[in-house]
Design a protein around this nucleic acid. Structure first.
Length: 208
DNA sequence: CGTCAGATGATC
DNA sequence: ATCATCTGACGC
């Protein structure tokens, strides 16, 4: 119930990112409420993995929307992205943080801990909690049985700030506030500033 | 609290 | 060599 259809993803990554806040990711008994995301936008976003064209790694991003783009970061952590925009355009949204909505015992066993976090702050933790692996790269989020994205509850407010770990990008894109987080969830972390967005319309008038 | 190094491996 | 990171060790 509430499984999100492919058309949801077939838009600009920033719009999808906004609407992903509060949605629920489900996989094998684990459910995570999305609290923080980053948009990597098509054409000219110098922080995007697709900035230099098509490669083996970023191939999923160029494919049809609604699929997972999973890659290994720093040799240790898997990152989960959801592919957006149209087939032939390279864009995606990185899932950066979430709140446990179910399967806490499974998550704890994956971390090898008896006491575990209810808040998953950081993309590596999210992927680990969901039990992802590289074999699930390009899997379709709208197909029942695998990794699924479901509707959720919209957050009360949205915070925006610069994306994390993209110092290699051009200053313009280092500063662009395309990292979004749900306000008032007790989410706290990272040095980068997050500011309350006054209205969705105002935000998108600046960044579309 | 804070900063910082090391782990670890696919990719270009 | 370069990374869309995390953790634990240290110093205050």
């Amino acid at each position: 119930m509430g499984l999100i259809e492919p058309s949801f993803y077939a838009r600009d990554a920033l719009e999808v990112a906004w609407d992903l806040l509060g949605c629920r990711l489900k996989h094998e008994g684990v459910e995570i409420l999305i609290t923080e995301v980053e948009a990597y936008r098509k054409e000219g976003d110098s922080a995007n993995h697709c900035r230099s064209g098509r490669t083996r790694r970023n191939a999923p991003m160029w494919g049809p929307p609604g699929r997972a783009y999973i890659y290994l970061c720093y040799g240790i952590h898997l990152m989960l992205n959801l592919v957006t925009d149209q087939d032939g355009e390279g864009a995606a949204v990185l899932i950066r943080a979430g709140q446990v909505g179910g399967g806490l015992d499974i998550i704890r066993s994956r971390r090898g801990a008896k006491e575990g976090p209810v808040l998953l702050t950081g993309p590596g933790k999210v992927a680990q909690a969901l039990g992802l692996d590289l074999g699930m790269n390009e899997s379709e989020l709208f197909v029942p049985g695998g990794l699924e994205l479901h509707q959720g509850r919209r957050p009360q407010g949205v915070l925006a700030g610069p994306r994390i770990g993209i110092g290699y990008a051009q200053p313009e894109h280092v500063l662009a506030p395309w990292r979004l987080a749900a306000a008032g969830t007790g989410w706290v972390s990272h040095p980068a500033p997050l500011e309350q967005v006054t209205s969705r319309a105002h935000y998108f008038s600046m960044w579309s």
